[in-house]
């Protein structure tokens, strides 16, 4: 069971990176919408995962994307930040101990919880990412619009993924 899950996560990692690099990075709507759907991998890690592992996986995910987009450090810093915030988001939920081993998919934690959790994570990740990328607050409004539009698009893609893969 444990081995199965490990293999599942390795496959998920590779597939998600490939989808991001192969499809999402090629979507261009006038430079305003850059969906970074790969954050889905961090969303799907088990609730009870040790914090250090979560951070390391976040870093590995970010640096993999960075290698493909020639932006060493930018995605990595954003994913590490999102991974750091993630446990705090769960503090406000009352999962039973039994549920804690679960993967926080839409099916497992319910529509309302999932929307709140996914939306917050995506917004945190995207805002951190877009502002790190510009590395200044000049053109604040433009960056803000980019971050908002991209977050919405990513959220829609993440929701669709939930209905496609994890329905039961």
């Amino acid at each position: 069971m444990k081995n199965n899950r490990l293999i599942w996560y390795i496959v998920a990692f590779v597939v998600i990176v490939l989808i991001q690099v192969g499809i999402m990075n090629n979507l261009q709507f006038s430079g305003l919408v850059n969906p970074y759907f790969y954050i889905l991998f961090i969303l799907l890690l088990p609730v009870n995962i040790p914090h250090y592992l979560l951070l390391l996986l976040g870093f590995a995910l970010g640096i993999s994307i960075d290698i493909f987009t020639n932006t060493p450090g930018i995605h990595a810093s954003a994913t590490v930040f999102a991974s750091f915030i993630r446990p705090f988001l769960f503090n406000s939920y009352n999962f039973d101990e039994k549920e804690k081993v679960l993967v926080p998919t839409l099916h497992n934690i319910g529509f309302k919880s999932f929307v709140r959790y996914a939306l917050l994570m995506i917004i945190i990740h995207h805002f951190f990412l877009f502002f790190i990328e510009v590395f200044s607050f000049s053109g604040f409004l433009y960056t803000l619009i980019r971050a908002v539009l991209s977050s919405i698009f990513t959220f829609v893609v993440v929701l669709i993924s939930q209905f496609l893969i994890f329905r039961k």
Partner: peptide, 21 residues
């Protein structure tokens, strides 16, 4: 505070990558 320290370390590493690019 190991996770917090690790978080700071990884962020510093990422930022170094950005600055040193």
């Amino acid at each position: 505070f190991h996770h917090f320290i690790l978080f700071i370390l990884l962020e510093v590493l990422s930022l170094t990558f950005i600055v040193k690019y």
